[in-house]
Design a protein around this nucleic acid. Structure first.
Length: 112
RNA sequence: UGAGCCGGCCGUGCGGUCGCGCAUAGUAUUAUGUGAGGAAAGUCCGAGCUUCGCAGGGCAGGAUAACAGCUAACGGCUGCCGGGGGCGACCCCAGGGCGAGUGCAACAGAAAUAUACCGCCGCUUUACGCGGUAAGGGUGGAAAGGCGAGGUAAGAGCUCACCGCGCCCGCAGGUAACUGCGGGGGCCUGUAAACCCUAUCCGAAGCAACGCUGACUGUGGCUAUACAUUUGCCCGAUGUGCCACGAAAAGCGGCUUGAGCGCGCAGGUGACUGCGCGCCCAGAUAGAUGACCGUGCAAGACAGAACUCGGCUUACAGACCGGCUCACGUU
RNA sequence: CCGCCCGUGGCGCAGCUGGAUAACGCAGCAGAUUCCGAUUCUGAAGAGCGGGGGUUCGAAUCCCUUCGGGCGGG
């Protein structure tokens, strides 16, 4: 994932929390909304609830790896925010990718 | 063999495929190299560095507290002294001063820094009196050094011997703290992690420090002195230019070669130091390590750099190495 | 990065400066009142002060260290 495809600013996150749709899985909670055309952008949040810095870093890595794995299949023009949950660091990124793919397909965000 | 004390060291290893940060080549997407810790943590101390302040000195405030050393410095470390604990290896100590002043010491007890309840002794007006007394009783954490003898009306360092304690002087050992011995004078409650006194040290803030770049905008200045306009000149005004400063926000630098690491030799009981040779070892900026496969074992704990070092403290599954003590047995 | 505050019964809080009784309210328990309940009244129980160490005759209080929670500034 390229750097300018990451969401960084606080207002970008708040836009998705208030305007976006919300779906959840055991490993994460996902907000999404229409964004810039032709691009897929992602922001990741791992709060203090996750644990130590090691756990928070791992949670972010696992979600990033899962997202990269299915990135070519995701429909263009959407922004996403993934919020890590307490069990996120204990998942394997392949399991998270499976969950993510299933959820996006059910919500019509996969290019077939 | 069992129990224990001290110190050191490691803390998933190797190979392959895809992916990530940085550097160097190369140039338009590839190669090559490299990529978290012993605590990166807590931020408890000490420094470097940067900016501000500053003639010099003092007060206030804070920190430390035997002695000698190590160090850039330290509240750290080493050695040693003193005290305490353990059979021992060894461990622990905030360890100056209450012999400057002030304060505090509940309850109990007669009395808490000075006293007479019981007792003992003397006197008398024989009384629930007066005086003397800290040997004995009882209270307390603490009651006027302990014990024996002399002494006395009864007693008391009142006197003497011995012991104890701290003060002063001398001698010996030690760099010193201190230790040992002798003499003198004396017998003092505890508490300074109570105020305080003494000695030593300390300017403040922190990489969101600070510096630079371009754009926008505001303020001030240009002195006997820039240029143009305002009628020629002077004053004044306006605009442009130059300089300085401020506010908001963006980017870049600061950013990793350093009191550095490894090995060898030498000095020192040690902390550590000197010399020689070799090495370059993360620099991200929402913040880089994931996924899959093979394989080894005791099946992997605590945990993620954010300006940089030296310590301290705390968390930590386990693996390995060395030295020492005690008990039992055998030789 | 810097500065500061708070941990005391189940809950909310005093006591800490200045050392010796852990006080108060709510909840809960028992009893009384009532036909029953609420209210009210009475009574008893429940914490050794976040953990560890030290100073002291004596520590919730003083000192050191540590854990957890919270606030503020740039």
């Amino acid at each position: 994932m390229k750097r300018n495809d990451k969401l960084k600013q606080n207002w970008e996150f708040r836009r998705l929390y208030t305007r976006g749709k919300c779906i959840s899985a055991p490993a994460f909670v996902l907000y999404y909304a229409k964004g810039k055309a032709g691009r897929v952008r992602l922001g990741i949040t791992a709060g203090k609830k996750i644990g130590t810095a090691v756990s928070r870093n791992r949670a972010k890595r696992v979600i990033t790896a899962a997202f990269d794995a299915i990135l070519p299949d995701i429909k263009k023009g959407y922004d996403f925010v993934a919020v890590a949950r307490g069990r996120t660091p204990f998942f394997k990124s392949t399991r998270v990718a499976e969950m993510l793919y299933g959820l996006l397909r059910d919500n019509g965000l996969i290019d077939l």
